[in-house]
Simulated scan of single mutants.
Amino acid sequence: MSNAITKTSFKLPGQTDLYVGKVRDVYHIKDELLIMVTTDRISAFDVVLPRGIPYKGQVLNQIAAKFLDATEDILPNWKIATPDPMVTVGRLCEPFKVEMVIRGYLSGHAWREYKEGKRMICGVPMPEGMKENDKFPEPIITPTTKAAVGHDEDIPREEILKQGLVDEAEYLKLEDYTRKLYKRGTEMAAHMGLILVDTKYEFGKDGDEIYLIDEIHTPDSSRYFYLEGYERRQAAGESQKQLSKEFVREWLIANNFQGKEGQVMPEMTDLFVNQVSERYIELYESITGSKFERADISDVLTRVEQNILKFITAYYR
């Protein structure tokens, strides 16, 4: 028995496929349902760390479920049910071959490009005279390809249309949905004393209908700053206080690991694993404004499997 899930190997009724990502195990059922198990795996520098983080999967799954429910008036989403705190069941959609990244602030990848002297990203101009973490006059959309292997790559709208990855009418809809979703996420974050700096959305189709798919507004897919003190820190040229898993990357760097060849993964002690778990619970409570209810993890793998089987039995009754 273990109190963290790092691997699943369920044999589910009607199972036709299993996709294993860095964090999620996704089961296809009868080519119509997806059962997404958000595991307790944690990755940094494109490497999955050797130990799972108790409650991390529950944190990410429940944040995503909350924001999917809070945005379903903007467009329908893939979610059908959450039969377990770590599981979302949804409709199987055909994903668009691009991810829609939207940035309200000059941070992360956009800042790295800007610092190198570039003033265009994905064909979108960035104003002169900006500092790291400054707010853009208007949020900018910087799509990426959806890479099956390796890193996603920036791709301008013109190239998306030229390659026929998305047709023009649907691409304009994706841009419109992206702006509306980001606006909603920004408003909800502000209510919690946070800034939604940048995020990404994925969309898919079932028939002629466009759906929002995957996770949204989680610390794994989004960057948050604390609103209080933002202006003061910007004026003083200080780093912004972030709400993300950046602290894990910092610990790895301090222990001489950045995923490069020849580097040795530092030991993840029980103390460190518990500290990361507590930080994820803090992330949940800061983002949602709700107290985190710890699920029973005395035998978490059995619990998750039984809850999935109950759902499938009831769904196909």
Rank of each mutant, 00 (worst) to 15 (best):
G164H: 11
S222Q: 12
I213L: 05
I160D: 01
H191C: 07
Q242W: 00
A190S: 13
Y177V: 13
Y230A: 07
Q234T: 02
A189W: 02
L212M: 14
G237Y: 11
D220W: 12
R179P: 09
Y230G: 02
K180L: 10
Y226R: 13
G204T: 00
L165V: 01
D154C: 07
E158I: 15
D176M: 04
Y230F: 12
K183S: 09
D176P: 11
K183I: 07
M192K: 13
F225Q: 10
M188Y: 06
F225W: 15
E209I: 11
K200N: 00
M192F: 01
L181A: 04
D167P: 14
E228F: 10
E168C: 06
E168I: 00
K205T: 07
R179E: 08
D220I: 13
L181D: 02
L227I: 04
L196W: 02
Q234C: 11
G237P: 08
S222D: 00
Y171H: 08
R232M: 09
S239W: 05
P156L: 12
I210K: 04
G185Y: 02
D154Q: 12
Y201Q: 04
H217S: 07
E158P: 06
D208I: 01
Y171M: 14
V197N: 10
E202S: 06
A169C: 04
K241V: 00
A169H: 06
K173L: 14
G229S: 10
A190H: 07
T199A: 11
I213S: 06
T186C: 12
D167M: 03
T199F: 03
F203S: 06
A190L: 13
E187S: 07
P156S: 04
Y226M: 02
S222V: 12
A189C: 14
I210W: 05
M188K: 05
E209P: 08
I213Q: 12
P219D: 01
H191L: 14
K162W: 11
T199H: 03
F225M: 12
R223P: 01
R179W: 09
R157Y: 11
L194A: 09
L181I: 10
H191D: 15
E175D: 05
Y230K: 09
K180D: 06
R179T: 14
I195H: 05
E187G: 13
V197Y: 05
G207I: 00
D198Y: 10
L227N: 09
I155V: 13
G164L: 03
K200R: 05
G229Q: 03
D198T: 13
L212N: 07
H217W: 04
K200D: 00
G193E: 01
F225T: 05
E209A: 12
L165I: 09
V197A: 15
L227H: 07
T199R: 05
G204W: 01
R232S: 10
M192V: 12
E153G: 09
G229I: 12
D176K: 11
T186V: 07
R232C: 00
A235C: 01
I210S: 13
D167L: 02
L194I: 14
A190M: 09
L194Y: 04
P219I: 14
I155D: 02
G193Y: 07
D214F: 13
P156W: 08
I195G: 01
D214G: 11
S221L: 06
V197K: 03
T218W: 03
Y230N: 02
A190P: 10
